[in-house]
Structures are given as structure tokens and as C-alpha cells.
């Protein structure tokens, strides 16, 4: 059996290079504010409002702000696995951007071991399987 092709779940939100995975955000060229998901048309800093925004990779590592594990299947459009598997959502503070970004915890990590302030890094992992593809998404993995 050959592996299904991988497709990214949301186009343009994350990528990878020789150093590993990263989230793609935008950065205002005038004031330096970051945005994730990307802000494409205007900076949201009320004292700026510049329309010049660059696409930039965000910090690959951050610190846990909080986390929670969901034990019930959420409503559509979440593509829940069958049978349902609990999943952990982690909120992570990025140091340079001074912002918090949510993401799932990687499947093989122990959510009970996570503490506020723990270092995590972004990785790309399978999210769910459809008929002809493996859909991938960004996740947070504890840094040993």
C-alpha cells in the first residue's frame, strides 16, 4: 500500500525548510506588528494603518501559555477522526512576536505533562485522512 499524498489543510499558513517547520504570519513594514493568521490588506495597529505587510516565518519555538484536552467530538466542520480521539489544544506565547498562537499538541506527547512556560516547537503533522489524501496541519511539540 502506497502512502496517500499529503495536502496542507490551510494553504499558506505554514511551511518548512531545512531548519524545520514554521508558521507563516505577516509583519507590518512600518511598525513591526505581527499577525497570525496573516493580515493581508492593512496593519491593525490603530496608530499605524500601513498597507505594506510582508509574509514572514514566525518564531519556531515558544512557551506554553495554557492547554486543554477535548474529550468530546466538536460540531462540524471539525474533521473528527472515527472513532473520536481526544485532542489537546495548546496556546503558545511566541517570544519575538509577543503574541499567543493556538495549535494542537502532537499526537504522541503527553498532555498531562505540559506546564505553563514549557518550551514547544512547531511541526507539521497529519491532521486527518480523506479518501485520497492525508491532510496536514501545524502542531506544537514539546522540546526535550
Amino acid at each position: 500500500m502506497t502512502a496517500k499524498p499529503e495536502v496542507v489543510e490551510v494553504e499558506g499558513w505554514f511551511g518548512s525548510d531545512s531548519d524545520g517547520a514554521y508558521l507563516v504570519g505577516s509583519r507590518c513594514t512600518a511598525c513591526g506588528s505581527y499577525f497570525f493568521p496573516k493580515q493581508t490588506f492593512a496593519c491593525r495597529n490603530p496608530r499605524c494603518g500601513s498597507t505594506e505587510l510582508d509574509e514572514v516565518p514566525l518564531s519556531r519555538r515558544g512557551r506554553v501559555w495554557s492547554s486543554t484536552t477535548n474529550h468530546f467530538a466538536p460540531p462540524p466542520p471539525y474533521p473528527a477522526r472515527e472513532p473520536f480521539e481526544p485532542y489537546t489544544v495548546v496556546a503558545v506565547e511566541l517570544p519575538a512576536e509577543r503574541m499567543v498562537v493556538l495549535g494542537h499538541l502532537v499526537r504522541d506527547a503527553d498532555p498531562a505533562a505540559l506546564r505553563i512556560g514549557d518550551e514547544v516547537e512547531v511541526v507539521i503533522e497529519p491532521f486527518y485522512e480523506s479518501g485520497d489524501a492525508t491532510h496536514t496541519v501545524w502542531k506544537w511539540r514539546p522540546v526535550p
Binding site: 505581527y34 499577525f35 491593525r44 495597529n45
Partner: peptide, 20 residues
């Protein structure tokens, strides 16, 4: 008031305090 860096529904990412 910008930047709101506390996770609020329905944020996936909060505001950034990099500039302000």
C-alpha cells in the same frame, strides 16, 4: 484596546505586542 494579547474567543492568534 490594541494590542489584546490575551486569548479571546474566537482567536487562533492574539494581537502582537511587538510594536506596541
Amino acid at each position: 484596546t490594541y494590542p489584546n494579547t490575551y486569548v479571546d474567543m474566537p482567536d487562533i492568534g492574539t494581537d502582537s505586542a511587538a510594536a506596541v
